[in-house]
Write a protein that binds this DNA or RNA. Structure first.
Lengths: 343, 343
DNA sequence: ACTTAGCGCTCTCAATATCAGAGTGCCAAA
DNA sequence: TTTGGCACTCTGATATTGAGAGCGCTAAGT
């Protein structure tokens, strides 16, 4: 981490704070007035000059005030920002949202992204939990017609996934029942990530009369393992970003919405392994997604029974209230994990 | 329908056609040049004056050209528009999209709304099929914990819905199995809309030793009947509307996105009973949704096994190529219905 | 060595003026 | 009924101007 003098730190902090509020470049007078000691604008100007040379701040044009650069925000987030707790009304609101009857996981997830977006006044993102991270409660084979079979997976926390399988030949009803019973006996309570390897190993060990049945069962499980949706992403409140003054520019908002609608990039960003525990902040171009270079992304993973199964996040303009958003994302990720567990 | 002279009709038709292409008010010179007979601009001006008095067209300001009003578009759609078939490349593209393996209904629906939006270059909307309109294949009861039970419904065409039920008291596993078997025996192949009444009537008829079991079964079905999602709506390509020149105005786009994100209004519009068969067109304020007064909505219902179970639509600026969009929506609604059937 | 007053300079933004171009409405003549 | 012609209106692009904000630099003060 680079060295900044105490005064430079304070100046940078004031610049970020003021810019986030006013959305217009911050001049030396403004800083001089809010600065703790009496100092003339000229002195501040000198400090600002240094900060600019070292690329913490920049001028949109000659003789305008300064705005923070990516690096400036980064330093702010890492070193200057004061920790903050979510305010009581947020705690209350989140508790209220999760208290009511929630019929299925989709609703829970939609509601969570809605919570994130209304409280942050920015876009709220929630990755659906990875299927592999969940524990199987029950598996159900439902024939759709002669050749197609629907495999329905119910996890212990009530998440349901289904996947159609195209069978080479019709399987008689009785055999299907036997396979179904066999699968439930074998797999109940197992982590879904382990299901396939477990079955294959089992096949190698057991060489009995049931061999053919086992083989079919493995086939069904392999083909019927949910393929899509693993990276499904719920987005709410993209309109908030549109309302920000810096997105009046329509080329920007075009690009933003392209990214938001495709969801691929976002899903990548959210599901990439984080470097460390806790809340991640990606500022401006740090996330390497050129279409939203002007946005920052604050993410956190959530856990169910100590196991990380997905992540949530907030996407907003680079100029955002990082303290507020970070504490919000942290808080909601925990509560969301708990809600998933209890449910 | 109001009377317009042949010439007035042709002038109106040309105005709509030209305006849709150029997005700027159409003057008398332009019309005079493209008009079938030789006529001077002055003559056209007279006709335009009449059309304006009768509210088919209007001037954005004095001495600008004319643009169609809602009434003008309506007349165009009802009387002037030439029928059109979807071009071969659209037929091919849609066929290709539906040919590939589709793993679950969500994917099918997402893909359909994507088809609508890319081909129309506007927002594509697809209502999920009403659950009540589908036929039950199988019902599955999976205990989540002591008090909660997950009811999983699988329809004949492979759609899966689940709903958690809060039981007053724990039901023993064996009894649950019996209830489950009973429900499957009784309800398989039944239209979901009829399930509840059927069971209640059955209860009244049968007064045997199984009465208590039946009672519990009915309870479970009543509570476990999927409540949400009935009006779930897939939206793709809202960004296309944002790109239209008339939505550069940011107050407009703000309102538009509010509507698109809430989805409630849209779902209402799509699920309201249509006046007649086939494609519906709602122009401008005809849909009584003030937030999108500048948009038109083209919708059609889709059927599975002769039964109407949902609808699809395209939302775009009022100035749209109605021939093209109408034929597209009509075409996709049929193909989508077929895809749902075969699936 | 640090701080500051002051001055000249630059750039933006809003207000204003100007002008060409498009299009109308209407009248009078064909 | 149609049309040529002309005066009038409104927009939109372009240029001009001036006030205001803010900086850099220098020289003087502490």
């Amino acid at each position: 981490m680079e060295n900044l003098t105490r005064r430079q730190q304070e100046v940078l902090k004031l610049i970020v704070g003021t810019y986030v509020k006013t959305v217009s470049p911050v001049g030396s007078r403004t800083i001089a007035k809010t600065y703790s000691q009496e100092l003339s604008p000229a002195t501040i100007r000198n400090e600002m000059h240094d900060l600019e040379e070292r690329n913490f701040i920049q001028q949109p044009h000659t003789s305008a005030g300064r705005i923070p650069t990516d690096k400036g925000y980064r330093y702010y987030v890492d070193c200057l920002m004061s920790e903050s707790r979510v305010p009581p009304h947020v705690v209350a609101l989140v508790a209220r949202e999760y208290r009511g009857r929630i019929d299925n996981m989709e609703t829970l997830i939609e509601r969570t992204s809605k919570i994130l977006s209304t409280l942050s006044e920015q876009a709220g993102l929630v990755m659906f939990p990875t299927f592999e991270g969940m524990v199987l409660k029950r598996i159900e084979l439902a024939p759709l017609n002669r050749r197609n079979l629907l495999v329905v997976w119910v996890t212990r926390n009530g998440f349901v996934q289904s996947q159609a399988v195209d069978m080479k030949e019709t399987i008689p009803a009785e055999e299907l029942t036997r396979i179904n019973r066999f699968l439930n006996q074998e797999l109940e309570g197992m982590l879904l990530a382990q299901v396939q390897t477990y079955l294959t190993e089992k096949l190698e060990r057991v060489q009995d009369s049931l061999h053919v049945l086992h083989q079919t069962a493995i086939d069904i499980v392999a083909q019927g393992f949910p393929k899509t949706e693993q990276r499904r992403l719920a987005v709410q409140g993209s309109r908030y970003i549109l309302e920000q003054p810096e997105f009046q520019n329509w080329e920007k908002s075009r690009r933003l919405f392209r990214t938001l609608e495709t969801r691929e990039h976002l899903a990548d960003l959210l599901s990439s392994r984080p470097i460390q525990e806790g809340v991640q902040v990606q500022i401006g171009l740090e996330h390497h997604c050129a279409d939203i270079w002007d946005c920052s992304l604050v993410t956190a993973q959530y856990r169910v029974n100590q196991r990380t199964v997905g992540s949530i996040g907030v996407l907003g303009p680079r100029r955002m209230q990082y303290e507020k958003i970070i504490s919000l994302v942290d808080f909601v990720s925990r509560r969301f994990g708990e809600a998933l567990e209890q449910w």
